[in-house]
């Protein structure tokens, strides 16, 4: 590797700061996505990064962009890629923020190197290394932000797709619809247990009428949830087990143990009400022929 240009690079940045900043800002605004950032914003951010780089180079050199001296530089890049990830930039558009500094910087280096070709080669090599490392860092932050964004969105979707509803004082129901894979089951189960704590519900009904099939792992998740709820002090009733699922469960050798099951959500609800000290009575005055619910004190 050629000698490190650590002394010349910061000096050039120092002496030609405004020139580099102007050229770089121009590169940025030329290729900017319409409507994402004003020229003033771009200029401010470029200037912030350049100053941070100048300080870092002067104090610790170019080798250690992961080190503490470079923290302010990484900070700026982190913010830039965070914003770009949220605005829907692509990874290469995001890395371009750093890479577009190459041309203005090389031009400044060439202007200051004069006739010393060897020095210029060394400088360009050194500057390339620093900028490439910074670009890589920017891309990594970008990816991480995107992934977190997507993970959060899919988590939100999972929770929305299976809401825990309060059927009655002390009774929760979780109507599940669609295929249950094990990660969905896990998310849903955790939110059910959390809701049990929040609402102080004594009974939770897991209704799987809308679930076509379950695999072993999912069946085991269901059973673990029932057991966990029991440890917390709440009872779970599983309702709506289709004949096919019943067969699967038996066939897989999954032991439902002493888990309470009911054919329909309505049956489960009746049982839940009796467990919480509520009785279902048919109204006798004819005004309400379908029956009404009466709570009786325990």
């Amino acid at each position: 590797m050629p000698a490190t240009p650590s002394r010349r690079l910061p000096r050039v940045l120092d002496e030609r700061f405004d020139e580099i900043l102007a050229a770089w800002t121009k590169e940025q605004t030329n290729g900017a996505k319409p409507g994402t950032a004003s020229e003033g914003d771009i200029r401010a951010r470029c200037s912030e990064l350049l100053s941070a780089m100048r300080k870092a180079l002067a104090s610790s050199g170019a080798d250690d962009v992961q080190g503490p001296a470079w923290a302010p530089v990484r900070d700026v890049l982190q913010r830039v890629s965070f914003i770009r990830a949220q605005q829907g930039f692509t990874p290469s558009e995001t890395a371009t923020f750093v890479l577009s500094l190459k041309r203005p910087l090389f031009e400044a280096l060439r202007a200051s190197a004069g006739n010393d070709a060897e020095a210029l080669a060394t400088d360009v090599w050194g500057a390339t290394e620093v900028l490439d490392r910074l670009a890589l860092f920017t891309a990594e932050v970008y990816m991480k932000t995107r992934e977190e964004l997507i993970a959060r969105q899919s988590q939100d979707m999972l929770e929305l797709s299976t809401p825990v509803v309060k059927l009655w004082e002390g009774v929760l129901a979780l109507p599940m619809i669609g295929t249950l894979d094990s990660s969905r089951t896990q998310v849903v189960m955790e939110s059910l247990l959390q809701r049990i704590v929040e609402t102080g519900a004594d009974v939770a009904i897991l209704d799987i009428t809308g679930v076509p099939t379950v695999d072993t792992l999912t069946a085991q998740h269901l059973i673990k949830t029932v057991t966990a709820a029991r440890l917390m002090g709440a009872e779970c009733i599983i309702s709506g087990i289709r004949p096919q699922i019943a067969q699967t469960i038996v066939h897989l050798g999954v032991d439902l143990g002493d888990i309470v099951t009911k054919a329909t959500l309505a049956d489960a609800f009746k049982l839940a009400l009796s467990r919480t000290g509520t009785t279902l009575v048919r109204s006798r005055n004819g005004a309400n022929p379908t029956g009404s619910l009466t709570t009786t004190p325990r």
Partner: peptide, 8 residues
């Protein structure tokens, strides 16, 4: 009062 995470 066992917490959900503890129970799981």
């Amino acid at each position: 009062g066992m917490q959900p995470a503890v129970a799981i």
